[in-house]
């Protein structure tokens, strides 16, 4: 089945999603939003993997996506656990209030 959609569109969409993710990480203060933005960036990368896998007719990119999803799941589990722990001590998940590493 010939490809109906040009690869460039996938790249553009992926870039837009990644940029949104980056801006979300840099600009938002809520830790949950931050995690979602990180997920967005991961999935933009996943999208690109899948698009190129199809475009090149190879399965490597699709296999890698499964790994990324697995790692992302683990990451979310650890990250949410951290956020819960922080919320318990600071009663807040505002990322600007977590600045104990300030030099």
């Amino acid at each position: 089945m010939p490809s109906a959609v040009n690869i460039n569109w996938y790249i553009a969409l992926s870039s837009i999603l990644f940029t949104i993710g980056v801006l979300g990480v840099l600009l938002r203060r809520n830790a949950i939003i931050l995690f979602m933005s990180v997920e967005l960036m991961l999935n933009s990368a996943n999208l690109l993997f899948v698009a190129f896998a199809r475009h090149l007719g190879q399965l490597d990119g699709q296999v890698l996506v499964f790994f990324v999803i697995t790692v992302a799941a683990a990451e979310v589990a650890v990250g949410l656990a951290l956020i819960v722990a922080i919320f318990r001590t600071k009663k807040s998940i505002n990322i600007d209030e977590i600045n104990l590493l300030k030099g």
């Binding site: 840099l26 990322i95 600007d96 977590i98 104990l100 300030k102 030099g103």
Partner: peptide, 11 residues
């Protein structure tokens, strides 16, 4: 000088 770069903000 270098301490200034360590803001503590994750972003």
């Amino acid at each position: 000088g270098l301490r200034l770069t360590q803001t503590g903000y994750a972003r």
